[in-house]
Design a protein around this nucleic acid. Structure first.
Length: 735
RNA sequence: GGUCGCAUAGCUCAGUUGGUUAGAGCGUUGCAUUCACAUUGCAAAGGUCCCUGGUUCGAGUCCAGGUGCGACCACCA
């Protein structure tokens, strides 16, 4: 054995494991199953993925306990994220999404992703992850999309799916609605206009503060807070719209802040998320003033066709002439929603979306969480998920992007005369308008998007029905498919043996997006929870405790640390001092320290090898031990207990800390030092104790530091009294 | 602003139902070393356990208030 452990040989060990079939399930044994949270197919490994180490530790631990351990890996198409990355690349080539019909665009993104995928699995292998790679699932595999389709079909037939208008943040510049993820909140100083609304007899007026005077002409109502003493008497009274002079009623609703402006607000439900909710609640008309190109609609009369900013100026000019602008506060600071791609202000717009009714579905989720059928580590996340379930509203599942699973719905053209389409025509010119104004075949061929009204007639089908049908061009929200992850990764017969799965570990910020949805779908589709235990950590941070992010430039590439110090050192660093739920600190110094620990283990092995040289010692257990032998043996049996129990409770930090303490500061620093004389004299009890203690420690260490322990296992082949060829499949000591 | 949570060494965290001198890793300092390991060993420094008050024989631990921080939600016309 070399003086220093060489982690460059890790790859050979990994190949050996893989060839031995160790990652495969073990027929006949009791099943233990973990599903890997699927990383983005397009992604490269980041520090968060390295935390999948906890999955690998559990899988290795259970495998050594004799279970039929199976870790199923996979990748997610990550709809919006991926399309965004792809579009950035397109932009570099001077192109945009708008230059392609949807089929071509989808195919291009598919090729783009294919070029990058596989990389992350290779990186997982560098980290020693012992997943069954032959079982890998991609969320756009046909069996997945088929199964997602079946779920949608069933939900639709049971009345759980509906269409409704929904307020989205729309970027007029990029021509797309943006997910919450893409919205950038920018603090900005804008004028706040105080507008006079005349009473019906024109003798008096009330004043309303607004940053957005341009859609006033569609406003039909004002609102005050019923608890607001100075304004509550206005409820039920009427004023005149300052532009159109039509009558407006003042309603009462708690959402109004009495201290903002004058305590009276105008409602523009079609272009403001709050107003939209209030309008829904009070059943007020929702009238759109601005079209998808960011121009005033025909309803705007003389302002029709103007861009939002032009209209604002024109309207203010007119209001000023009428003497209806009380004053303007030029120093109003507020936060504005902008497009994180182009920086333009976003226009809240209503558009028809597909929704899932969650009321009944989420009640079932609440039940299993409350009853601890699904348990959380640390337990505080039980409260988090329950709080989220409280506010969870109906789920808009449609996204206006190409990269995803198509919503399997078709619109018959002659039953929906108001279908709006955009497409690339035969001369490669982009066209937009009503379907009946174009040649159907041409539209079908170059189709980019179809917009059907909320009450459109449709058929649910995976295949195009016969006749003149256009497809729904929205795709499913990524969480709609990844929420069904447990259902699409297991084989049909495994639902009787491997379901619910045992363990799910992920980052706590997707608790509500992903964990809650997996439970929801699993209860709906299988009437069973998807997993028993959920383990969460909060984030991966740098040496200073600052969250790693690209914008801060403090991102550590785990693979670089593996290159430098070895996978084992990285794995131990991630777990040492990291209880469930806490920040994961990844610093070069810490990894180096753990590399030193790995070398310590290696050198204990080397010491053992040297000690047993030219020793014809019987491997049998001696009859009597000295005091220090008995001490270390009794500590060893405590260690087995501690490590086993800690792993059973997912207290990885306790387990590795106990191992570190024992191996380094008890076995190496104390026992080995005390017995050097006896070892050199070939004392059988000392040799036996040393060997037994070391090999047992090696087994306990293996889930945490698989490479170095396996390497020593091979080096000391002739010294072991364990029959197992590979440490990865040798047996865990009995407590 | 609402809800929940957190506050212990320079940093990240342990500290189990209240019970002697509050611990670990990493970092810092000093000394040693041809020993399995300098990727080492030995030793040291470093804490008013956020503040104030309370309960108790006894509080890092329980209670109340304050302060600071974080997460999520709403981010306000």
């Amino acid at each position: 054995m070399d003086k220093i452990y060489d982690h460059k040989k890790e790859r050979e060990i990994y190949n050996l494991w893989e060839k031995s079939g160790a990652f495969k399930e073990k027929p006949g044994a009791k099943p233990y199953t973990i599903l890997m949270p699927p990383p983005n197919a397009n992604a490269s490994l980041h520090a968060g993925h390295a935390m999948y180490t906890v999955d690998d530790i559990m899988i290795r631990y259970k495998r050594m306990q004799g279970y039929s351990a199976l870790w199923i890996p996979g990748m997610d198409h990550a709809g919006f994220e991926t399309q965004y990355v792809y579009e950035k690349q397109l932009a570099k080539e001077g192109k945009s999404r708008m230059d392609f019909d949807r089929e071509t665009l989808y195919k291009n993104i598919f090729d783009f992703v294919k070029g990058n995928s596989g990389l992350i699995f290779e990186q997982f292998k560098r980290l020693a992850f012992s997943a069954d790679w032959d079982r890998a699932v991609f969320t756009l595999d046909k069996n997945v999309t088929d199964s997602v389709f079946e779920t949608f079909k069933r939900m639709e037939s049971e009345g759980l799916v509906y269409r409704d208008d929904y307020i989205v943040n729309y970027c007029v510049h990029d021509g797309t609605s943006l997910a919450e993820l893409e919205v950038k909140h920018v603090e900005r100083t804008d004028p706040l206009y105080y507008i006079k609304y005349p009473t019906l007899n024109d003798k008096d007026y009330i004043i309303v503060a607004t940053t957005r005077p341009e859609p006033i002409f569609v406003d039909t109502h004002l609102a005050v807070n019923p608890a607001d003493k100075k304004n509550s008497h206005l409820i039920g009274t009427r004023v005149k719209n300052p532009l159109t002079e039509t009558e407006m009623e003042i309603i009462g609703d708690e959402f109004v802040d009495p201290d903002f402006g004058t305590g009276i607000v105008k409602l523009t439900p079609a272009h403001d998320a709050n107003d939209y909710l209030v309008a829904k609640k009070h059943n007020l008309p929702i009238i759109s003033a601005i079209d998808w190109n960011g121009r005033v609609r025909e309803i705007g009369g003389k302002y029709a066709g103007m861009k939002v900013k032009e209209a604002r100026e024109a309207i203010l000019k007119d209001l000023k002439e009428k003497g209806l602008v009380d004053h303007i506060d030029e120093s109003y600071v507020h936060s504005v929603l902008t497009c994180y791609k182009c920086g333009h202000d976003l226009e809240p717009m209503t558009t028809p979306n597909w929704f899932i009714k969650v009321k009944d579905l989420k009640e079932k989720v609440r039940q299993v969480v409350e009853d601890d059928k699904v348990r959380f580590y640390p337990p505080k996340f039980k409260r988090h998920i329950l709080a989220w379930l409280d506010i969870m509203h109906d789920w808009p599942i449609s996204r206006q992007i190409v990269w995803g699973i198509k919503i399997p719905v078709w619109y018959k053209v002659d039953k929906n005369s108001d279908l709006q389409v955009s497409f690339i025509d035969k001369n490669r010119v982009k066209k937009f308008g009503n379907i009946n104004d174009f040649d159907f075949k041409e539209v079908e061929r170059g189709l980019q998007s179809v917009r059907a009204s909320a009450n459109a007639q449709y058929v649910v089908s995976n295949q195009k029905p016969d006749g003149k049908y256009l497809p729904e061009t929205d795709t499913f929200d990524t969480w709609f498919s990844s929420g069904q992850w447990p259902m699409v990764t297991l084989k049909e017969e495994e639902f009787t043996t491997r379901f619910p799965t045992n363990f799910m570990a992920t980052l706590s910020d997707i608790l509500k997006f992903w964990i809650s949805r997996m439970i929801l779908f699993s209860l709906y589709l299988k009437n069973e929870i998807p997993f028993k235990d959920v383990y969460l950590w909060s984030m991966v941070a740098d040496a200073k405790g600052v969250k790693m992010s690209k914008s801060k430039g403090n991102v550590v590439n785990p693979i670089e640390l593996v290159d430098k110090y070895g996978a084992d050192a990285l794995r131990i660093s991630l777990l040492y001092g990291t209880p469930a739920g806490s920040k994961v600190i990844l610093s070069d110094n810490k990894v180096r320290g753990m590399r030193n620990f790995c070398n310590k283990i290696w050198n204990l092995g080397r010491y053992l090898q040297i000690s047993f040289q030219e020793t014809n010692i019987s491997l049998d257990k001696p009859k009597s031990f000295s005091k220090e032998d008995e001490e270390i043996l009794s500590e060893l049996s405590n260690l087995i207990k501690t490590v086993t129990q800690s792993l059973d409770k997912y207290q990885f930090n306790f387990a590795i800390e106990a191992l570190y303490e024992f191996v380094w500061h008890r076995l190496a620093d104390v026992y080995v030092e005390k017995t050097k004389q006896r070892i050199s004299e070939k004392d059988p009890a000392a040799l036996y104790t040393l060997r037994h203690t070391f090999f047992t420690s090696l087994i306990l260490l293996h889930p945490f530091a698989p490479f170095v322990t396996e390497a020593i296992w091979k080096e000391l082949k002739d010294l072991r009294n364990h029959p197992d060829e590979n440490l990865i499949t040798s047996s865990w000591p009995i407590v």
